[in-house]
Nucleic acid binder design. Structure first.
Lengths: 218, 218, 218, 218
DNA sequence: GATGAATGAGTATTCATTCAT
DNA sequence: GATGAATGAATACTCATTCAT
């Protein structure tokens, strides 16, 4: 956790450091992300960095935590779904919002994706919490679906959660790839999610899941 | 490409270097993988490494190529599917074999996954070919499915290919996670794919896809 | 250009580093001059060198610039010549002073000579400016001589400038050779220019040039 | 000295190695000249090099010796001057021939120039012989001039020898510079000495020396 | 006599972290 | 609380030379 000195910083300065840190860890993985580079760009003293953070690791873990919180806040701040809403209608809404998150915080999303999928410089333990959280979230969705009767009872919870999370976690990147959008350009506001026509494909994707997961209608 | 000196090495020594290299690049990304560490563990002279490989990049690209070849060979050596086989029956077979590959070459699979999904130290070009190949493969499957009438005609090819490839690419890792198996222990032969009961879940997964993608029966 | 950290160093330390650097680059050309050796002898940390200088090239170019400035300062600090002074009287003065410079800064002179005459590790561009400056200086002298009527009008400016610069550039080294003086010993203050009787030869040399270049008296 | 194995080589192969070695040592100084590069380009085995030469130093010294011999042979093979010829007429002839040597053996000339003027990787001793030879040659010329009565008796032999040698040694390079000719292109026969109009300047240069050195006519 | 793989000390440069001011 | 100079282990890579075949 960052030290108090960091949180006591004037908001403007704190935000600057944070944004530059996100850029740095979005572009490079843990080892290659450079504190030297960060402090140079933020125009703070090397020593100051160590007044704000324990070490590089401290900053990194903070960013990952932040990414989780940001995503959660993002989803909550938008009209959160009626708990009685059909699960697939919720997913239809959520995949849009999730993609929009990737669009509005592309660099932070990149940091998180890196942490979740490949770069594990600090061993697995610091990430397990995040991963457990994510997993629990999707398992909750599956259980909700079963309770609503829109997911077949016999399906393995764990496996369905894997299916959903895998798809949702990669969908944002898929959109970027498909539309040949670079995360850095995106961070500079070069694109607008609304301008991209993905609705049809998104609906098809949810349809597939719905058809695949629902009890067979007779 | 490694130099002839490498291929002329006694098999035992060559294998040793290769395995240690795979370990190194499985644990760390390109930049962090250390040649110094590799040669120390392999007990060869620094200079010898450069007799065998042009440079670090040369070794890395070789490993990636190797991963592709190994996977291809693995799939081919097992009874390859009857082209007339129903696509989903083929997928049912392939997801098993693919997972088995991840089991028999866990570290090499890790190197490849890293290359495909996050670590792009050498620019995108060396990977685009691989990625294009993978993408084409899955789009071919989609088209086959449509031709067989087992995938709905109106579905977007690209999106379905994304769905399949995402699931297949992550399934192996999912199995490892679910069974709490570490790739390094696995590499030391600590586990056996057959001993793990995944058949039910695997079948369910394919069922979901089949139900989701097939034309609605009426 | 060295960084501020270098100029902020206590004078004693700065001088030590500089002198050892001059020794290093006087003995060896750019590629062979060893930063490792330098920092070992200066007893500073490897990393400290890179706090002071961008890189090896940075130090090298600084030394060359220093050599130029030192020489210029040296000539200016001594009573600069009356612009109306006969060119050959000026040369008589200058060749003495120039040789004295080689005596008081033998290693720096060696670095500069190497840069001007043979070692071009960084392409020609950084040196062209210096070389152009030197060339322009001598051509200016030739034109002055013609204006004063002490150099024959029909002589090729370029060629005469070559003649003068070649002689002046090599004279210092000639004196060292003739008196069997080693630049390194000299740097340690083992010799004194005044103690060496060269006045007669120097005068003869200028006489030769004067007789050779002047319009024939009739 | 190269070993007998070298001299026993088929002439074609020996010449090839020699020419590539000259290229290597013309482009780079002793330390940077690369045996690895040489053997690669000559397509001989690394070990073979050490069958032919003691070490790098051995080859280098051989090249320098060769350069001296070549120059001597070059001057002798052309109609050598009548010993009774006026010294300055001889110099007028010699400066042409010398420049032509630089033109016909530009790379070898470069190796020699480097050795004489700046690169002294092996200490001074191996070069002293060459330098002594050169010096003796020019002192001989000065004495001849005095004997002929065309050089003033009171001039210091040593200094006049310095003057002549300095000018003659740098004149070839001056011509190359003035005509913006690159030694490597020259080695490939891209230029022809005859095509360059330097006669006027050359004559002026000798005139200057003659006027400067001759006893004053009254 | 030819080969070419093996060696290892050498190179410049980077960077997280410390600590005296 | 801020500073930024100092540190030194770490990095990839080179190359003359040796030596077993």
């Amino acid at each position: 956790m960052p030290k108090n000195t960091f949180f006591n910083l004037p908001e403007e300065k704190r935000e600057l450091i944070l944004n530059l840190a996100i850029e740095e860890f979005a572009e490079k993985d843990f080892k290659n992300a450079s504190i030297s580079n960060l402090v140079a760009r933020a125009e703070i003293a090397k020593g100051s960095f160590y007044q704000y953070f324990e070490d590089k690791r401290d900053l990194y873990l903070y960013l990952i935590q932040l990414a989780g919180e940001e995503k959660k806040r993002f989803l909550e701040q938008k009209s959160p779904p009626d708990p009685n809403m059909n699960l697939f209608d919720f997913l239809r809404w959520a995949i849009h919002e999730g993609a929009q998150f990737e669009f509005s915080n592309p660099l932070l999303a990149k940091v998180a994706a890196r942490a979740l999928f490949s770069d594990r410089p600090l061993g697995d333990s610091p990430f397990e919490q995040l991963q457990t959280m994510v997993k629990a979230y999707y398992q909750g969705l599956v259980q909700l679906g079963k309770a609503q009767g829109v997911i077949r009872e016999d399906l393995d919870d764990d496996m369905v959660a894997f299916l959903l999370s895998t798809i949702f976690n990669n969908f944002g990147k898929y959109i970027l790839d498909r539309n040949q959008i670079d995360a850095n350009e995106l961070a500079q506001g070069a694109f607008d999610y609304q301008s991209i026509q993905m609705k049809d494909q998104t609906n098809q994707l949810i349809d597939i899941l719905q058809n695949g997961l629902s009890p067979v209608k007779q």
